[in-house]
């Protein structure tokens, strides 16, 4: 009658890793502050450099939350090591899923990007910015830049209950309508990415009259081509449209065409 958590001899060990990204996803984990101590009843934090002085460096870990994209040969090696020591590997946030904002540099020649930042590029040997899934098998993804705390919680709970987490795949429009918001596109001609973007944020931006930037990445079976024509119709230039689709998930199969891949 009542769901039971799976039997575990000891608390599952969590590790949090960061690659190329801004650490915002980790901060979102910390934003669970009001229930953070409750979480510690169920999980051991075994590796998390941002919050712990002593970290268990060699695993194995039950759950590894990996933030950030992979952008150097060292990172490729590292993520493969982490995979070996992790039972359940989570691509934690958009960077780990598909490169997110750092992946904007994939759209320009490597040298150009490097010289824009560094005087001396001789020590720089970056690769294309890609999600961790390009190099290792991932067991779950948490969409968002950053993922919403409720989604993080849902994933952790589902681990304890051994269920598939209920993470939203439908567009932001659904959550936006739940909140009785008028459509920014039709009412105000504001280019909102909501109709192609995965929900899970509770329609945060549109509820504040700001267009959805698309930070949860593509929804299931989106129609980006249609949205691009709508943007064109409300007066966006081709460059603007490309920028919109490139921003958070330009490397995704769903958006890459509208992001300018020819």
């Amino acid at each position: 009658m009542f769901v039971e958590r799976i039997n575990m001899r000891e608390k599952p060990k969590i590790a949090v890793f960061k690659f190329t990204g801004c650490a915002g996803c980790q901060l979102e984990l910390l934003r669970l502050e009001d229930i953070f101590l409750d979480l510690l009843e169920f999980f051991d934090i075994s590796y998390w450099v941002m919050v712990k002085r002593e970290n268990q460096e060699d695993g194995p870990w039950d759950i590894s939350l990996v933030e950030g994209s992979i952008s150097t040969p060292e990172e490729i090696k590292e993520i493969k090591e982490i995979r070996k020591k992790s039972k359940f590997l989570v691509a934690f946030g958009d960077c780990a899923i598909g490169g997110c904002i750092p992946s904007i540099r994939n759209w320009m020649p490597q040298m150009e990007a490097e010289t824009q930042v560094y005087h001396d590029t001789s020590a720089i040997h970056s690769t294309k910015v890609l999600g961790i899934g390009e190099y290792v098998k991932i067991d779950a993804i948490l969409k968002g830049c950053p993922p919403h705390r409720e989604n993080i919680l849902e994933l952790l709970k589902s681990y304890l209950l051994k269920t598939k987490p209920r993470l939203r795949k439908h567009p932001v429009c659904i959550e936006c309508k739940y909140r009785d918001n008028a459509c920014l596109i039709t009412s105000k001609k504001i280019p909102c990415m909501g109709p192609v973007t995965s929900a899970g944020c509770g329609a945060l931006c549109p509820s504040l009259n700001r267009e959805c930037e698309g930070c949860f990445g593509p929804m299931s079976n989106p129609n980006p081509e249609a949205l691009a024509s709508i943007f064109r119709d409300i007066g966006l230039s081709e460059e603007d449209i490309i920028r919109k689709f490139r921003k958070y998930a330009g490397t995704s199969i769903e958006f890459q065409r509208e992001a300018g891949l020819r």
Partner: peptide, 27 residues
């Protein structure tokens, strides 16, 4: 334009009644 499958039409429809059911359990 082509349909976006965004679902807005059905959510604002005064006669659409379809719903999903799920459990939420706390920590």
């Amino acid at each position: 334009f082509p349909c976006l499958s965004c679902g807005s039409c059905s959510l604002v429809c005064p006669t659409c009644y379809c719903y999903d059911v799920y459990d939420v359990i706390d920590l």
